[in-house]
Amino acid sequence: MPQTLKFEPSWDKALPDQDRVKIKQTFQQINHNTTEQSITFTPLWQARNYKGELLVTVIINNYSEDKLTFDQTPINYMEDDQVLATHFFTLNTVTIPSKTSMPWAFIFPIENISQQATFDNGILSWA
Rank of each mutant, 00 (worst) to 15 (best):
F106K: 01
N49D: 14
P109L: 09
L124V: 00
S98E: 15
N62L: 05
E79K: 04
I23H: 05
T86D: 06
L54R: 06
F119L: 10
A14Y: 08
P109C: 08
S98I: 08
S101C: 08
P103L: 03
I96L: 09
D120C: 14
N112H: 13
Q29C: 05
K6D: 10
I107Y: 06
S10R: 12
N49R: 09
K67P: 08
V21N: 08
T118R: 13
Q25A: 12
D66Q: 14
L5M: 04
E79Q: 15
V56Q: 11
T86A: 08
I123K: 07
I75T: 01
D81W: 07
T73C: 09
T95Q: 07
T34Q: 09
S125A: 15
S64N: 12
I113T: 03
V56I: 15
A105F: 07
Y50S: 09
Q46R: 10
K24Q: 15
F27Q: 04
T40L: 11
I60M: 00
N33E: 10
A127L: 02
D120S: 15
N121A: 10
N31E: 04
M102S: 14
V21L: 13
L5H: 10
I123H: 05
T100A: 12
S64E: 10
V21W: 01
D17T: 15
T40K: 01
K99R: 14
Q25N: 12
F27R: 03
Y77M: 10
N31M: 05
T86W: 00
N49S: 08
V58K: 06
D80P: 01
Y63G: 12
P97F: 05
V21I: 14
D17P: 09
L124E: 07
L84Q: 11
V94Y: 00
D17I: 11
E111I: 01
N31W: 00
K6Y: 14
T90Q: 13
Q29E: 12
T93D: 13
P43D: 04
Y77C: 06
Q46A: 12
R48V: 07
S64K: 10
S10W: 08
T73D: 01
P97V: 02
F119Y: 14
I110F: 00
V56Y: 06
E65S: 11
T95D: 02
V83P: 04
N112Y: 07
Y77F: 15
G52H: 03
S98T: 15
T69W: 00
T42W: 00
K24W: 04
K6N: 13
M78V: 11
Q46C: 09
L84D: 04
L68W: 03
D19I: 12
L44G: 02
G52F: 02
I110T: 09
I30T: 05
I30F: 03
T42D: 00
I96A: 04
Y63D: 02
H32M: 03
L68D: 05
T57K: 14
E36M: 09
A14Q: 13
A127D: 11
A85M: 05
T34M: 07
Q115T: 13
F7E: 05
S38Q: 13
W45Y: 14
M102Q: 12
D19K: 13
E111C: 00
